[in-house]
Design a protein around this nucleic acid. Structure first.
Lengths: 336, 336
DNA sequence: CGTTCGTCCTAGAACGTTCTAGGGCACATC
DNA sequence: GATGTGCCCTAGAACGTTCTAGGACGAACG
């Protein structure tokens, strides 16, 4: 048993004592910066290994003015946020940054999540599809750089990285029209992030093709989609539907099929997000893919640019979406 | 612009200077511990408020020996992990602890996730459904208390909090048999955490009812379920199927219905997890619910008990599951 | 009047790192 | 032989907290 305590975590000083050098030198070796001979480096490494030394992030961050730490706020429910978090980890690692996560849960709101991160010395915040109002985000941005992902924010203070959601739905509509559809309905996402853009994209595309827009209330869950499907079944069926997101599309598909309607036979359906569920062989939903790789890379880069004081040209970076055609869309039936 | 820098984050010293007291006193006020008069308390609070002071977690944790921090490793893809994380936040808060999250992603394995947490001075680790081997977990447990949730581990070193997965499937089988089913097939989860227990529960229950067990390979994704369904369709359909989890059940349901088989008309189906998707009106899947509240509460409590050196009676805590009957199970058709 | 005891407060030392200055020392250069 | 000039290395001061010892002051007690 060590004289200082039963299971005290080993420190730089312990390693230094064992290797017979100063703590500063150990620090140099551990950080892999120049200033130590190969022989000593080896010796220090071995000593550290032997006593199971792990650098203490807290102390490290406390000392160095830059923490190289990015705070990420994400929704624990959102499957798409999971994808984004994955991408962010990779992007952050590439530039030598770490991530601290803070989850938004049904009981833990965004404010709490952000407050947690603020105490952790993050240099910047990346917030995924925030629900907070513009003013709250702007206030936050006065403290530290804030990058919002997958939602647009009307504030000069925060940076935004998002998909061109209007284009996404336009792609879907164009695809459907090219297949021969003339009667395309949109199921809306209400006040969800991105819903307004997608709605606009739908309207523009439909008008461009000289068709009449028709928008049904929807939402972001399967239940919302199911409700929309029931509304749809009440009248004459359109030949195609663009749905706010995949989950909603899934609910809609399910109700349509249970009502005996075939997809894509009687109705073509498109989703949005290209989520794992859309890719499943059994679902195989035509969907609009967001470029996670690019969204996350841009978000991290923008945060760093702000930190480095690089002049930023455009506050909002918009990434083009991509249509992934699968088996829920086909030419309309030759009838009527 | 302040003399010390353009946007330095305010510290205890800044608050102290403004309120005309010592830093120690400010610390006392901020922590809400006795040792300051009401008047000064008020004055310090106001000063802190005015300059927008936020305590620095890093420094705070560095100084105090106990960090009151629990590390949580979770899978960013797993919907159920999301539920558990929510519960953990709540449970930790109740006992005055904070959580630091570390995600496992396709590119970031468990080892990396754990390493990140170890540097963060967590007092204990809570690992959700780990894929790591027993020895790796045991090694880890030599460093600090490790609580594994939702998977059983054959090691005396780590604590386990899990659902009685065998009982869960037994509940499902009993329910089906009570409805009149005599031909119940199980779709397996392979090597996924919990799969072995569920398989065993199925076998036991079926034998108890003097029926013949039949187990089909499955997995944890919708695609696995779809494959199992196709295998099922190749021969005479059983009257009921218990599936490893909800996602797999979903894939199975989809393929069955597309093949024109009605559920629960021709086949009854049960899932496992009672995930959000199972609860959807359009899916409405009979499923086995895990008691998230209790799982997370027990996990946090156990971590704390270990830290406090409370003698622990049973290393493994098993929480009973609950069957949620919905519309995918019904009596078998009166034919044959 | 001297002691004892609270209450409120402060000085200064931790905590485990990194960073800034600089100290030796060998080797090359004048 | 003096002077640079590298390269290794170290002492000691940060970083922003919390914690340990008290100090000052008034009130209560002998």
């Amino acid at each position: 048993m060590a004289p200082t305590g039963p299971d005290r975590r080993p420190t730089l000083a312990d390693v230094a004592a064992r290797a017979g050098v100063s703590t500063a030198l150990v620090s140099i070796v551990m950080r892999d910066v120049p200033g130590a001979s190969a022989a000593t480096r080896e010796r220090v490494r071995r000593a550290a290994e032997e006593i199971g030394y792990r650098p203490d992030n807290r102390a490290r961050l406390l000392r160095s003015s830059r923490s190289r730490l990015l705070g990420v706020v994400f929704g624990v429910q959102h499957a798409f946020h999971g994808d984004l978090v994955s991408g962010l980890y990779a992007a952050a690692e590439r530039v030598g940054y770490e991530l601290t996560l803070s989850a938004v849960t049904p009981e833990r709101d965004e404010l709490r999540a952000v407050a947690g991160l603020l105490q952790d010395r993050c240099e910047a915040l990346i917030i995924l599809g925030p629900q907070s109002g513009t003013t709250a985000l702007a206030d936050l941005a006065a403290r530290l750089p804030v990058v919002v992902v997958a939602r647009s924010v009307r504030s000069a203070a925060v940076d935004v990285v998002r998909t061109a959601d209007d284009e996404g739905v336009q792609l879907a509509v164009d695809h459907l029209v090219a297949l021969g559809h003339r009667d395309v309905v949109h199921v809306d996402g209400g006040r969800a992030p991105g819903a307004a853009e997608r709605r606009r994209g739908y309207r523009d595309a439909v008008r461009r093709h000289c068709l009449t827009p028709r928008i049904l209330p929807g939402g972001l869950t399967e239940d919302d989609g199911a409700a929309a499907a029931r509304a749809l079944l009440a009248g004459p069926l359109p030949s195609a539907v663009t749905v706010f997101n995949d989950r909603c599309a899934l609910g809609l598909l399910d109700v349509l099929r249970r009502a005996g309607r075939t997809v894509p036979g009687e109705v073509s359906v498109t989703g949005y997000d290209d989520s794992r569920i859309a890719r499943l062989a059994s679902v195989d939903l035509t969907s609009v893919a967001q470029d996670v790789e690019q969204l996350t890379t841009l978000a991290v880069r923008r945060a760093l640019d702000r930190l480095d004081g690089v002049p930023v040209r455009q506050r909002e970076q918009v990434v083009p979406p991509r249509l992934v055609v699968r088996s829920t869309t086909a030419p309309p039936r030759r009838e009527r």
